[in-house]
Design a protein around this nucleic acid. Structure first.
Ligand SMILES: [Mn+2]
Ligand SMILES: [Mn+2]
Ligand SMILES: [Mn+2]
Ligand SMILES: [Mn+2]
Lengths: 218, 218
DNA sequence: ACCTATTTTTAGACTTATCTAAATATATTT
DNA sequence: AAATATATTTAGATAAGTCTAAAAATAGGT
């Protein structure tokens, strides 16, 4: 159907549309895809010919209905495979992204569906991101960033915003994991750092950390 | 490491070397790869530059040690994924080949190993073909073709030579499956057809069928 | 040994996806 | 409103993998 490269562009546009709640600029896409603006223009033209995106010169790009649907299916596969790797093959959550980048391009609707069934139709991937169902519906969670919580407020850790290996291993090292209760004990106005209580341990974390942890309030 | 196309060529050369027990000709490879001889020559040159094959103009091609090792790893992944699809995801044995053709190119040694472990280190794929271990060792079985059996001889069905959907579905329809006992009741000299006994049922099969079923004698 | 048929290679072209450098359009400042 | 800066597109090139058509090498038959 579509090439790996086309699928990767669609996915990138999908994420950038949500990030900036607007059309996606050539430069933003070049940055996200780690490529040059001229390459992006070329690809956008091709995606536009295939009716996957809506594109007007110099005006940025956005996904068509078909492009959106296609991007979601790629994301669905990515997250299902990540879940598979962690839950069935003993991978750690910081090791799965690159492999899922490959697996997300495998073409077989039956495979995707049977994998989903085999995994018990999981709702979230190892990083707390929602796994769209076969129809493309995401289950939305009312999560917020830990940095938005005030003193004495608490919630459950439900996701990470940054899912780089570096950040995930930092969390591992400090025993921060999805599903754990977190309570804000102190909040430092000067640098945004906070003292949190997690599993009876007190831990001081910088704002960079609290800005990348999603919390659900009960 | 290597491209999908390169890996597919290596695999094809590997299979043809065994099929003809000799160097592989450009035309044979073109036929196997479903492409043109000129494309084969181009690719062979590239593989030769990368030291994956030994090639002398007009003299055919054979795998180097590195090429052999690489081909075996691709075959290992192909067969492990086929096993996974049948044993864990409820695929029928005639549905898995095309998906495995995609999955065999996923690059991650850890993934291959963890998958192998998860599956219980299976020795054979759903078609009875041996799955090489991490070091590339195949377990050899002393199988023979059903067509080579004489009247009153018997054995266990352990593999298929042709693993096309058409053949596999024919076997399904006639309740022929790996692991079943087969006894030759009659053998017709005229057309090579035979009457076999399989699970208390008598079945007449043409030589085309008996030529594509592997049997192990007790 | 020569002629012919077959196999294999080469030459030149095309597609996809990328790049650099240059041109053009849009946005921001003065 | 003009000048300048930034963003985007175009032009032309490259690499991988394929193709067709033509040339060259090998194999077979007499
Ligand atoms: Mn990921
Ligand atoms: Mn994820
Ligand atoms: Mn197969
Ligand atoms: Mn197989």
């Amino acid at each position: 159907m579509f090439s790996f490269s086309e699928e990767n562009y669609l996915k990138a546009i999908f994420h950038l549309e949500r990030k900036y709640q607007a059309g996606v600029s050539t430069n933003a896409l070049a940055e996200e895809m780690d490529t040059k603006a001229s390459s992006v223009t070329d690809m956008i033209k091709k995606l536009s010919e295939k009716e996957l995106v809506i594109y007007k010169k110099y005006q940025g790009v956005k996904l068509s209905e078909l492009g959106d649907k296609t991007a979601i299916q790629v994301i669905r596969k990515h997250r299902l495979w990540e879940y598979f790797l962690v839950e069935k093959l003993n991978f750690n959550w910081d090791e799965v992204h690159d492999i899922a980048e490959q697996l997300e391009h495998i073409k077989s609707e039956k495979l995707t569906h049977e994998l989903d069934k085999f995994l018990g139709f999981p709702k979230r991937d190892p990083h707390g991101d929602p796994i769209p169902d076969a129809e493309g519906n995401f289950s939305v969670a009312n999560k917020m960033l830990l940095s938005e919580l005030g003193k004495a407020e608490k919630g459950i850790c439900v996701g990470v915003k940054d899912s780089s290996s570096e950040f995930l291993r930092f969390l591992d090292k400090n025993n921060i994991a999805l599903g754990k209760d977190i309570k804000v004990l102190e909040k430092e106005a000067f640098d945004g750092s906070m003292l949190i209580l997690i599993e009876e341990r007190e831990l001081r974390i910088s704002q960079l950390i609290s800005n990348n942890l999603y919390i659900k309030i009960q």
